[in-house]
Simulated assay, not measured.
Amino acid sequence: MLNNFLLVFAQDKSLTKINGMSMVASRSTINDANAKDLRDIGSNYIAVMPYAFMPKAEKAQLFFDTKRQWIGETLAGIESDVETLQALGLKVMIKPHIWIASGAFTGNIAMTSEEDWIQFEENYKAYILAFASMAEKNKVSLFCLGTELNSFVSERTEFWCELIEEVKSIYSGKLTYAENWDKYDDVIFWDSLDYIGIDAYFPISENKTPSVEKVNFAWHGLKSALKSFSKDYNSKILFTEYGYRSIDYAGKEPWESSRKEVSGNETAQLNLLKGLHQSIWDEDWFAGGFLWKWFPNYNSDSNRHHNRFTTQGKISESYLKSFFKKI
């Protein structure tokens, strides 16, 4: 009887959704109090994001783990944060991002010569393998091979297939890749990974403050396509990023992140999150997701993030706490 109970318990644990938060890298490593805040809201997975930098989208240069970066973006800083999070029982996804100095979109990275492509591939491989090796050393549960790199992925497929195999040779945890919401069906190597990773900024509503019912209706159509795609690859879909700003028309272009001043609207953010959770979270083809984003050193006295993606200090924060703990 006890053995049967333990078996059922283990199976239930294996089916637990990823209730993830995307933690913003900071100037210093996080402390126990920062990690406890994440645990207390009900998260069970945290995405930590080591950044690499490119001067231009068409140049092969790629810099990472430099003294000019914030410690929270470097190998040493990420490793320290991983240890702190894991010590409090939180699992981790390491999710590398590239930042282009010109502000260009990473999905448009494209070299102008074969020589530059080869050099860029070498630079990118060094970046990924460095963090994959650190992930293995620290028993990190999930590793993401890259974020929103559509042109690179579609034009250099042989490189990506080889990179996946090389990462698997040094890292024993689960693997995903994060593609943008409108390009996930361009990726040919999903069957080599453990999850289909989507940064899920799908257009949902053109209303100023969409109702939860209208958000549910919008997801009904999207859900059908996602379920079919998951079935085609026999792999669960993971929202490697999802979220909405607390602004008017937040569901119209959820990917929009400019610093242009717009009217705050916490109800729009709340309704969009509720609708997504109600529509998607219980689906058996869905693995869970990482909400964008959480600041470990959030300043509640500042208005800097009042109309941005974070739920901290907003009505969505208490909702998330109840939702994550309920499931």
Rank of each mutant, 00 (worst) to 15 (best):
L2I: 14
L2F: 14
A10D: 13
K17I: 03
K17A: 01
S22G: 05
A25E: 03
S26T: 06
R27C: 14
T29G: 05
N31P: 06
L38W: 03
S43V: 01
P50D: 08
E58M: 02
Q61S: 09
Q61D: 12
L62F: 02
F63Q: 07
F63V: 06
T66A: 08
T66W: 13
A76W: 08
I78A: 09
D81L: 04
T84C: 07
Q86V: 09
A87N: 11
L88F: 05
V92N: 02
P96D: 10
S102W: 05
S102V: 03
F105H: 00
D116K: 03
E121W: 00
I128C: 05
A130M: 08
V140T: 03
L142R: 02
L145H: 02
G146H: 00
E155C: 12
F159N: 01
F159M: 02
W160A: 01
E162W: 08
E165H: 10
E165S: 14
E166P: 08
S172F: 04
T176Y: 11
D182R: 14
K183F: 10
Y184H: 07
D186T: 10
W190V: 01
L193I: 00
I196C: 00
I204V: 10
E213F: 09
E213Q: 13
K214E: 13
W219Q: 06
H220A: 10
K223C: 15
S224N: 10
A225T: 12
S230M: 07
Y233R: 02
S235T: 04
E241W: 03
E241R: 05
Y242F: 13
S246E: 14
D248A: 11
A250N: 13
A250F: 11
K260Q: 13
A268R: 06
L270Y: 03
K274C: 14
G275E: 07
I280W: 11
I280C: 07
D282T: 15
E283S: 05
E283L: 05
D284F: 09
W285T: 01
W285C: 01
A287V: 00
G288V: 04
G289N: 03
G289Y: 02
P296M: 07
N297E: 08
Y298S: 06
N299L: 07
N299E: 08
G313Y: 00
K314R: 06
I315D: 04
S318R: 15
Y319R: 05
I327A: 15
